[in-house]
Design a protein around this nucleic acid. Sequence first.
DNA 1: ATGAAAGCGCTAACAC
DNA 2: GTGTTAGCGCTTTCAT
Lengths: 335, 335
Amino acid sequence: MAIRLQDIADDLNLSKMTISKVLRGQTDVSAETKARVLKRMKELNYRPNISARGLRTGQTYSVGMVVPTLENPAIAEMVRGINEILRPAGYSLVITSADGDAEVEEREAELHLSRQVDALIVCPRNDASDIPHVLDTTSVPVIYAGTPPPRSVGVSISLRETEVGELAARHLLERRCRRRGYLRGPRTAVADQRFAGFLQALHAAGATLRQEWIVEMQPEEGDYRSGFFATKRLIGGKTRPDGIVAYTDLQAAGARDAALAEGVEIPHSLQIIGCGNAVDICEMQLSLSSLDLVAEEIGRRAARIALKRIDEKGANGQRSVLLSPKIVCRESTRR
Amino acid sequence: MAIRLQDIADDLNLSKMTISKVLRGQTDVSAETKARVLKRMKELNYRPNISARGLRTGQTYSVGMVVPTLENPAIAEMVRGINEILRPAGYSLVITSADGDAEVEEREAELHLSRQVDALIVCPRNDASDIPHVLDTTSVPVIYAGTPPPRSVGVSISLRETEVGELAARHLLERRCRRRGYLRGPRTAVADQRFAGFLQALHAAGATLRQEWIVEMQPEEGDYRSGFFATKRLIGGKTRPDGIVAYTDLQAAGARDAALAEGVEIPHSLQIIGCGNAVDICEMQLSLSSLDLVAEEIGRRAARIALKRIDEKGANGQRSVLLSPKIVCRESTRR
DNA sequence: ATGAAAGCGCTAACAC
DNA sequence: GTGTTAGCGCTTTCAT
């Protein structure tokens, strides 16, 4: 089937040991031999068997990653960040999707370990109540990236979720919004933290949030439509909000379109800010301010820590990292 | 480090062969022994080394996939389709991203082969002028999925791209559009084919396309903005189009917003249809008709063919498949 | 500068 | 029903 070291050795009347040395760039091979070997490798399209090498050396130079789904543009950003660090270091990232299912997630994590990855990056589902417990017992470095893991284990790179709410609150306060509406997002820990941060920042500024302007979402409805209808309702009340925080950019888009449909001027009479900074969505007219959740940077950090932990062979000298979101101001909150 | 068969064998005073048999569900093991082994495996959190097994058996039960980027929602759909078929068959899909770079694409394909995947699914870049030639020489089944490969090799599952243009043309013709604008997309083979299909369907119906209503895109500009400004220009002319075909849904969204901004009524005075059926984009108000490029089905087909080719051990009895796009009619072309 | 032997963790093909 | 032997493709160690 595939070409082996042995085949090349036979061809050239050398031992496979010599071929192996050339392959790995050892210096104790004559220049001439080296050239012949390299030439033959190319001709035969030789590709080393990483499994066999890994079996011998205990290293595969691959890092596994389990993502909850690929539908999410933040995941794509994170992957870019990870690859940016991993590739120059000679490692490669292999991704599998959990398709939003806890059991599949666990299974995929296990498979990565079975495939002997040198490290494993797990991107927990937003709505995860627990993370795969296979990962508690492995000696392979595991790094959680993105959503903070629901229970404290190992090393994680995640966002200060409360700051997402805080930044949104401060942004609206700076812009003199007095009647703030909050589209609360799903019933998850992440959404709770963001909301807590929002409330806390309001309190700190002596401001309050009216109960009837906190809107629970109908998860079946889809983000855009839920944002749309929630905002219709808010606008239809006797006193209207003059600022709205949405849990996603799509919800923010729904909110914008509901407001425009009612003839509410944005940002003059109503300011809107979303979450995720999904450029495709945000930069449509009228463009939406958003919170950048710095997924790419999370990816870079996760990758760097993975490399360090591989290097120190599990000595676990790495600490978890929390990053801060960033406001991206566009027309929807521009004065 | 990790637990091996041997460790369990030692623990239980058995040979590792017996443990291996239990692991693989062979029947010639006493129920009692089997139970003991299973129990100990669980206790020790044993995970078989797939590399070692693969080295011995020549099968890893993993299928590699190289994608041009993860930013594209169609890729996520395709992956869903692939996993839907692969997982029940006991295979798992491992994905790597080429980050839009031909060299990286080639390297990632090679790495998959080095990691001994049982098959490789390659999703060529839209703008690819060639595909990795490493793949010409391997005995591992390679399946191209999505964009048709630029040169004919092996098995591919792709879309009848000309039909994309044809369907769009027929859709507009049925709706009595007389003055059709066409936002042409990038200078790629795929865009050319779609355009050719569009023209051909017009001709077949005795209709024509005015040269000044074919708009080339400025690729740097971003899809939304390019669609927006192209449509502004079209609308600003002395005679206005009453139908527009856009190369992507985002461009269609830009077209819609440009028209609405100019007070043009959709669909009454102008009908718009995009491509890709990206639900997030299409289902915003006013919702956009689009061509579904059936990525998920392409994924399923690719996976099935991968399994067949693994099964028949390279006998290559599989033929390429061409699928047809589907019209999804929403408000922007609703009478 | 080159090579022989051993073994990584597992399983196919056989004994017993 | 259980165990022995050999070997997958590679690299480590140590001779030559």
